[in-house]
Amino acid sequence: MPKQKSAARSTSIAGLLTATSLVLALSGCATYDVTAPADARADATAATDTKNGADAAQGGTANGRTGKANGAHADSSDVDCRKAKCVALTFDAGPSENTDRLLDILKKEKVHATFFMLGKNHVVKRPAEVKRIDAEGHELANHTWSHQILTDIEPAEVRRELSRVQDAIRRITGKTPTLMRPPQGRTDGEVSEISKELGLAQVLWSVTAKDYQTNDSALITKRVLEQTERDGIILLHDIYKGTVPAVPGILKELKKRGYTIVTVSQLLSPAKPEPGMVYRP
């Protein structure tokens, strides 16, 4: 992540939403907005309650629901992370030769995850895995075309890094991702603006096993379990051979501890991912 110099909360429009957006001032670049999953959910709930109250006052047919927003991603569990103890599971940089095995594990455990996929040498070379990720109810997301650090390249190249993955996934699945993860978590105001133009919210993380440093599955498991808290976002990679073997143990222990394992969009629901926004626990 870029070094944070300052942070300030901004109030919601017309006072209807809770104060959740943070504005981070970065050294040498513009600002960008950050919000936590719990704050995003609270904002969406407050907005829905206000709208329902206004509709009722006008003699409308407000139904009082404050559940999933229309179009929000959900799976068969229909989880509400305002009530459940949720944690989002994410995988970066695939698909790879390990992805099918990972999908077998997730299917057996009835867990859905968010896959932030690379374009070059991954999405374009493994369309069958991309189709399977989608068909089995996982969330398709963007991790750039070639893993360039977006804050180090020109805006036109940033746009190309992101849009090429959007196009490739859409050609394979008919769906366009709404989430992206910047390589190394490095973003700034310019990257955020381009993400907004492309309809992409940015997703960082709170848990990392640093599985790019080790193939020790037991160590990967230990690191994840030590860091995981409610509303966290777990970052793993399905390209490293030590990671997938760690997943069954991670899932078993998280369930034992009372966690419901969800996709990023489920974690945010009833909020919808806002293009350009940075989501970080």
Rank of each mutant, 00 (worst) to 15 (best):
I153G: 11
P2G: 10
E193F: 06
R257M: 05
Q227M: 14
W145V: 09
T50G: 02
A156N: 14
K108V: 11
E136G: 03
V247F: 00
F116G: 14
I220C: 09
K252M: 08
M1Y: 06
K241R: 15
R164W: 12
G71P: 13
I172D: 11
S206F: 03
E226M: 13
Q202F: 05
L179F: 01
A42I: 05
V34K: 07
D188H: 10
D104H: 06
G276T: 07
S96L: 08
A128I: 00
T228W: 02
R280G: 00
D167W: 09
E274Q: 13
P155H: 10
I250F: 01
T99V: 03
P275S: 12
E154Y: 01
G28N: 15
L140S: 04
K68E: 04
S206V: 07
Q202T: 08
A25C: 06
S77I: 06
S146I: 10
T260A: 08
V130P: 02
T214P: 00
E157R: 10
G119Y: 10
D92G: 11
Q148E: 15
L106S: 01
H147Y: 09
M180E: 03
G137E: 08
E197G: 02
G59N: 04
E274C: 06
A218Y: 06
K83T: 12
W205A: 04
V87A: 13
T208V: 14
A141F: 02
G15M: 13
H122C: 12
N52F: 08
A135H: 07
K272C: 06
Q58H: 10
G137C: 09
A201R: 01
H143W: 07
V124W: 02
P273H: 09
R186S: 14
W145K: 05
T18F: 02
Q202M: 09
V264Q: 01
L89A: 00
G174C: 05
A84S: 13
L225A: 03
A30S: 06
K120N: 15
I234N: 00
S192P: 01
S146F: 02
T31N: 13
A218D: 15
V224A: 08
T35M: 09
Y212D: 11
K175T: 08
M1N: 05
L118C: 05
S195P: 03
D216L: 06
P37C: 06
A19H: 10
D43R: 15
T99M: 04
A47C: 06
G94F: 14
S96H: 04
D104Q: 15
L267I: 00
G258N: 01
L22A: 01
I169F: 04
D75A: 08
D152H: 15
K5V: 07
G137V: 11
K68Q: 13
M180V: 03
I13V: 11
G232I: 01
A93Y: 09
D231T: 02
T48A: 15
S12C: 14
A62I: 12
D167H: 14
T151W: 06
K107F: 03
H138K: 01
Q166N: 10
D152M: 15
E109M: 03
K256V: 04
L89F: 00
A69E: 13
L235N: 12
